[in-house]
Amino acid sequence: MTPLDELPRIGAPATRALHGAGYTGLGQLDGVPRAQLAALHGMGPKALRILEEALAEHGLRLR
């Protein structure tokens, strides 16, 4: 289980995209619109799936 203060392993481009948008931990993504993350350069469908699965482990989700 990924701790809420860390991001799961999603690949360098997606991680850079999240850091560039100011997200450094999984917990910060709760309630963020999926479309907003999908629009980030470097964020692909696989990374979004991994993020959603990691959030679900904590009872959280994207909007």
Rank of each mutant, 00 (worst) to 15 (best):
54 A>G: 06
11 G>P: 12
63 R>H: 13
30 D>S: 15
15 T>D: 07
40 L>R: 05
37 L>W: 02
63 R>S: 15
40 L>Q: 03
23 Y>V: 04
27 G>S: 05
2 T>S: 12
34 R>E: 14
54 A>H: 01
36 Q>P: 07
43 M>K: 03
7 L>W: 00
6 E>R: 15
25 G>W: 03
57 E>N: 13
35 A>L: 15
33 P>C: 12
25 G>L: 05
14 A>G: 08
19 H>M: 03
30 D>N: 15
50 I>N: 00
18 L>N: 01
59 G>N: 04
8 P>C: 01
52 E>N: 11
23 Y>I: 09
5 D>G: 10
43 M>Y: 10
1 M>C: 09
7 L>A: 00
39 A>W: 11
11 G>M: 04
2 T>H: 02
48 L>F: 08
46 K>Q: 09
9 R>N: 15
16 R>S: 08
20 G>W: 07
39 A>F: 14
6 E>F: 09
50 I>H: 03
59 G>Q: 04
35 A>Q: 14
32 V>S: 01
21 A>E: 04
4 L>Y: 06
24 T>P: 06
15 T>K: 06
9 R>C: 10
22 G>T: 13
5 D>S: 11
22 G>H: 08
62 L>T: 06
59 G>V: 09
12 A>R: 07
28 Q>P: 09
24 T>D: 07
9 R>D: 12
5 D>R: 05
49 R>E: 12
51 L>M: 02
40 L>N: 03
10 I>V: 04
36 Q>S: 14
52 E>A: 13
34 R>L: 13
35 A>T: 15
37 L>N: 06
16 R>C: 00
1 M>T: 12
27 G>F: 01
61 R>Y: 12
38 A>F: 13
33 P>T: 08
63 R>N: 14
61 R>V: 15
63 R>L: 15
30 D>P: 11
57 E>T: 12
20 G>H: 09
61 R>W: 14
25 G>V: 06
42 G>N: 05
58 H>L: 11
17 A>D: 08
25 G>S: 06
61 R>A: 15
6 E>D: 10
5 D>Q: 09
14 A>S: 12
37 L>F: 11
16 R>F: 12
29 L>A: 01
17 A>I: 02
23 Y>T: 00
40 L>Y: 07
41 H>S: 13
44 G>K: 05
14 A>V: 05
54 A>I: 03
53 E>P: 04
11 G>E: 04
13 P>D: 00
49 R>A: 13
1 M>E: 10
63 R>D: 15
15 T>M: 00
38 A>I: 14
50 I>S: 02
21 A>M: 04
23 Y>G: 00
49 R>I: 10
20 G>C: 09
8 P>T: 03
17 A>L: 05
50 I>P: 02
13 P>A: 01
26 L>T: 04
39 A>M: 10
25 G>R: 01
17 A>R: 03
8 P>S: 01
62 L>D: 02
46 K>N: 07
34 R>T: 15
43 M>V: 15
5 D>H: 15
22 G>N: 04
2 T>L: 02
35 A>C: 11
8 P>N: 00
